[in-house]
Nucleic acid binder design. Structure first.
Lengths: 351, 351
DNA sequence: AAAATTTTGATGCACGTGCCTCAAAATCGT
DNA sequence: ACGATTTTGAGGCACGTGCATCAAAATTTT
């Protein structure tokens, strides 16, 4: 009984390509050809080698392989230069991850761009060629120019990944969350948190031009209409990132609608609208839900000024993008379960 | 303008120890002595080398280092053999992670133990010695015997980490969530989801012997009492993992208390109690909150039988434990931000 | 100043894989 | 049976670091 609890094999040396060659009855050169999928090996020989791989449980030693290839990766994050707090977090994590991944021969850089100038983005992407860069993660609104540029980039052999900002074209390899589901999540919490028998919900965005906001709004409205029909959602207010404009449109909306019981801030920059709302001093207690964890929103959550946050982990976003870019440029498949970005729900107790 | 957007340095080779030696004006042997903290180097020489490290931005090539050391890690997960669905998930992820980490020369194994027999656990840990094993992640209730065994293990140079199951002693290096905060999170959602003006909350656990359940209960009660005083919490019901007993105690409780408006299932195995409750056919709609994502709870969430789940990502738990064990056995510091296990909130829309 | 000690240099092998060349062997087509 | 072609073998260098040895140089102690 005690014996059965003893760890099985003490320190078995892991099989190497040499062992493979011996067991398969071929030379190391042939093993190499099979392992790296080179031409000119008879199919039965391939079989012998793969059989040996299975038999020995051979796993390629990545350290040795990387060393031999002396390959290094260079990835570029193309990000808007407008510095809201969420972007700052992303930047911080890129630099942090850069240090960690440095020992794996991975360099991550940031290229700020003007997200509203599709030509500039396209022009930048056009300058990239393999040899310079191994992969690009792009956070920018989807435009025909960008789509074209990304297609040409792929043709030239530089892999690209949409990052956070949703792009319909490249659907399932987006590194980011399903914004429609995020909107639904916000709506469900909103609906269940509001106890008033009826009322209106203020919806605030930076701009409804962006696909992200549109999808969040779509999901939000769907759930409110289907499951919380005693509540109504007001038309989206757009701040365009300006505090002045935010103040104007929000105060106008609050005066026009005395029955506001909830506020949903869709944009990743929640500070401006929420500060305006606080000054507005609404008649009743309202439930407010926002997106993304920033120093401001985190603090507001603790104070009770925000009731819930819908977030995506910036560190995970960055690391996932890097891992997936590396897998792409090595033509590997990623372990998908690890790479799914979760829609996180934060309340005061699980910050 | 276009020019400023061009990526800066094409493919700069990374500095090696040779470069360090050249720049510092010493030999590669001395660089090696400094890098690996060996004795017998004058402090000014150390300074010269560290200055060169800073100047060149040298980062040790981990692939090469690992290869040279030809070090491999062997980690053991000591887990209860009682097979609830959450444990099954953990097991699955250990095996999955095992394949991924295999290329990093890391082997992860599972040692099932009878979690209620502290002597058996202690006896097993006593068989482990460095050379056999590099690290152990232990999921078991805290007992004096276990504490002793872990201390002796550490003295022998095998590092150990409490895993999921909270152990007070080793406080901050637990791989898992803060169960008190998890209980608080459950309570906050419970309180806000319940619209009834008053009512009682059923609390079900597998056993209140375990520290985890105690802490969850503590956090839960604190928030209900402080913030939702119109609700009252009933004494914890213990199922001891038996369906029969669960049925008995739960039906007894529901008959005794007609005003139940919420159910909080604290144990990681929510299936049994929830199935019993469904049969019980309570008078009013109740809000139910449970822990851990399993095939059953996930399905119940989709069906609306569960309103929210408080979870910890099993894949993340496993990978984090492995990374931290490696860091421990290399005497490195882990990048803490990545290793914090989040208390996740799942509702039907963000599964 | 000589001896003892500490500090440094020079050099080489090892780790496991990728990649290369050249020749030998096997197989094919006629 | 011959040449042409495909397939395999043998061998070696490279990657960057860890680790070892032994001698040379610098520094301290006597």
């Amino acid at each position: 009984m005690q014996k059965s609890l003893r760890p099985s094999t003490p320190n078995m040396a892991r099989p190497t390509t040499k062992d493979l060659a011996r067991v398969a009855g071929v030379s190391r050169a042939t093993v190499d050809r099979v392992l790296n999928g080179r031409e000119g090996v008879k199919s039965e020989t391939v079989e012998k080698v793969t059989a040996a791989i299975r038999e020995l449980g051979f796993v390629r030693n990545l350290s040795a392989a990387n060393l031999a290839k002396s390959k290094s990766y260079r990835f570029i994050f193309v990000l808007p230069r407008s510095g809201d707090q969420f972007l700052d977090e992303i930047l911080r994590h890129i630099h942090e991850a850069g240090e960690v991944f440095a020992s794996d021969m991975i360099w991550a850089e940031v290229q700020p761009i003007d997200e509203n100038d599709p030509h500039q983005i396209a022009a930048f992407l056009a300058t990239l060629s393999p040899g310079d860069v191994d992969g690009v993660a792009i956070m920018a609104p989807e435009t025909p120019q960008l789509r074209d540029a990304m297609t040409r980039l792929a043709e030239r052999g530089v892999c690209a990944l949409p990052f956070i900002s949703n792009q319909a074209l490249s659907g399932d390899n987006l590194v980011g969350i399903d914004n429609r589901a995020a909107g639904k999540t916000a709506a469900t919490l909103m609906g269940r948190f509001i106890h008033a028998p009826r009322g209106q919900i203020l919806v605030i965005a930076e701009s409804m031009q962006s696909r992200d906001s549109l999808e969040r709004r779509l999901g939000f409205d769907q759930v409110i209409n289907d499951s919380f029909s005693h509540l109504t959602t007001l038309p989206s207010l757009e701040t365009y990132g300006s505090a002045d404009r935010a103040e104007r449109v929000i105060t106008a909306a609050t005066q026009r609608n005395p029955d506001i019981v909830g506020v949903y801030v869709m944009s990743s920059e929640a500070r401006i609208p929420l500060e305006v709302l606080e000054k507005a001093d609404l008649p009743q207690q309202i439930v407010s839900i926002a997106h993304e964890r920033t120093p401001f929103t985190e603090n507001a959550l603790r104070n009770g000024n925000i009731d819930a946050l819908i977030t995506q982990d910036p560190g995970h976003l960055v690391r996932s993008a890097i891992r997936r870019l590396r897998a792409l440029s090595d033509n590997l498949t990623t372990s998908t379960s690890q790479e799914k970005i979760r829609i996180e729900v934060l309340i005061a107790t699980n910050i």
